[in-house]
């Protein structure tokens, strides 16, 4: 049988490992990232209140310019430097 050529870039097939899970949210810096969908502020605000009041997280908020494109490198770097955990709210 003749050999096939793959449509895939082999380098893109690796699985990215998950970041280590936090054992507790208490005292941890948790950033809630808005992708700028309507009503993001209300939803993430309530989530942040719960994470802060019930789990002791130090909650902050960030956003990326638009939900239709990837977060620019400066946003990624800000998240990496300033948070122990990030929650990204996707879609509506």
């Amino acid at each position: 049988m003749e050999e096939y050529i793959s449509p895939y870039d082999e380098r893109s097939l690796g699985k990215s490992p998950l970041a280590p899970r936090l054992k507790s949210l208490s005292g941890k810096r948790v950033t809630l990232l808005s992708i700028r969908k309507p009503k993001s502020a209300e939803f993430l605000g309530e989530l942040g209140r719960i994470l802060g009041e019930q789990h002791g997280a130090l909650v902050s908020y960030d956003e990326k310019p638009t939900f239709t494109r990837p977060a620019p490198p400066e946003v990624i770097e800000r998240l990496r430097a300033g948070a122990d955990a990030v929650v990204e709210g996707l879609a509506d």
Binding site: I5, S6, P7, Y8, D9, R11, S12, P70
Partner: peptide
Amino acid sequence: PPGTGELTLERLAV
């Protein structure tokens, strides 16, 4: 996009 695969003309031909 949205993955990270590089498109060569060979992969496009595939």
